[in-house]
Design a protein around this nucleic acid. Structure first.
Lengths: 212, 212
DNA sequence: GCAAATTTTGACCGGTTGGCAAAAATTAGC
DNA sequence: GCTAATTTTTGCCAACCGGTCAAAATTTGC
């Protein structure tokens, strides 16, 4: 028995306007959280009136839900790519770099997610306990395999994943703090490369097998 | 020229009730953010009526501001303790442990702070650019000294501090995600010790000088 | 170019929210 | 025990917020 996902035939205008609204909503929600954002704000950011916006999304919740659902796809992609075959250390470095690139290129998505988790994940709890947990369990097994094979040091794979999430997403979620502390970007290749270099060396050295 | 901080002589009841309100407000604000929280919620959590609460704090903003100001004191304390004298690696391990203990013992404060930063730090920007930045600069110098002396590996001290903040606060701010992924606490010494052990080994190994 | 479908607008509504004011109740000082 | 100061309650209001509705404007299919 399959669930009918009644494909909602959309007109050209509907497709365009919905996209416009989602873009505006991402901007607003990521900056003020769900309750902190008003439909009026989103409507104004999208350049339309509130009732007009509500013609495309009947509820504020619907916009948010659509945004979150879409975000999760991109969000878990890097972890999904963590591959069994291939050199462990190279795989992990790749994962860290991809996560860091996401924090740089999609900071609003990161903050939207952070907002949701901070408030107790009221709308995505099932996904955390289901899809996310299953995926992490799967990748933890991969990492454990690497540890047994001596490719990386034996540590807690769960907390390893947490620490990669934390350090990379920090640059999106705590961006204003990072900027305030570092001051105006002083030339060079910029913060991103500095952060990438630091994290790479921290994790590579920190996880190298039998160092003494 | 000193700024007169007109000491507001308080009665016994005022002292007690204000404390009660702040405790309730911390609970509410940290869970729902500033805009997501209502005075009514806080009043109910404090066991009093809304107008009664407003007798002690004339505005919602005032409660929040008081909370934030108080939080910052405790928040920066661990970093202030980072001491020049003493073994570098021991100092850093101590700092990591203290930050992790704070995430465990004061998760609400951590989330209050995270909420504030996430929303662009509208109320504490000056403090970030002033007090916090100065303190970090000072400690960065200490760390640089250690690096020159060969006590720890040469890496970017700013990003080192960021990564310690990120990894430790993660356990408070993203608590629900950590719980969802790890599942019900399965015996043993618990998550806290696991996290402490992992982070300690990651940073100690990752920062040890000339490993090869 | 015309009818039907779609999109946009403006007016509105009920509930919530932050905050005020004044009176009533309580407490503190003597 | 009486008075003045403090605390609490009741009642309220104006602004805001999510959402509805019906009519007007526009676009689409032919």
């Amino acid at each position: 028995m399959t669930v009918e996902t009644a494909r909602p035939r959309r007109t050209r205008i509907q497709t365009e306007k919905r996209e416009l609204i989602l873009e505006a909503a991402l901007e607003v929600f990521s900056a003020h959280g769900f309750r902190g954002s008003t439909i009026d704000q989103i409507a104004e950011a999208a350049g339309m009136s509130k009732p007009n916006l509500l013609y495309y999304f009947r509820r504020k919740e619907d916009i948010h839900a659509t945004l979150i659902k879409r975000l999760l796809e991109t969000w878990l992609a890097p972890l999904r790519e963590l591959d069994d075959i291939g050199d462990p250390m190279t795989e992990l470095r790749g994962y860290i770099r991809r996560k860091l690139e996401m924090a740089r290129d999609y900071p609003r998505e990161s903050r939207l997610f952070a907002n949701e988790i901070l408030q107790g994940a009221p709308r995505i709890m099932p996904m955390l306990e289901g899809e996310l947990r299953a995926l992490v369990d799967e990748k933890v097994d991969v990492i454990r395999g690497w540890m047994r094979a001596g490719g990386i040091a034996r540590t807690d794979p769960f907390h390893l994943i947490f620490s990669i999430w934390a350090t990379t997403q920090h640059y999106a979620d705590f961006d204003v703090q990072v900027r305030a502390v570092l001051g105006p970007d002083r030339g060079g290749e910029g913060r991103f490369e500095d952060a990438a270099r630091f994290l790479e060396s921290l994790f590579v050295k920190g996880l190298s097998p039998r160092p003494d």
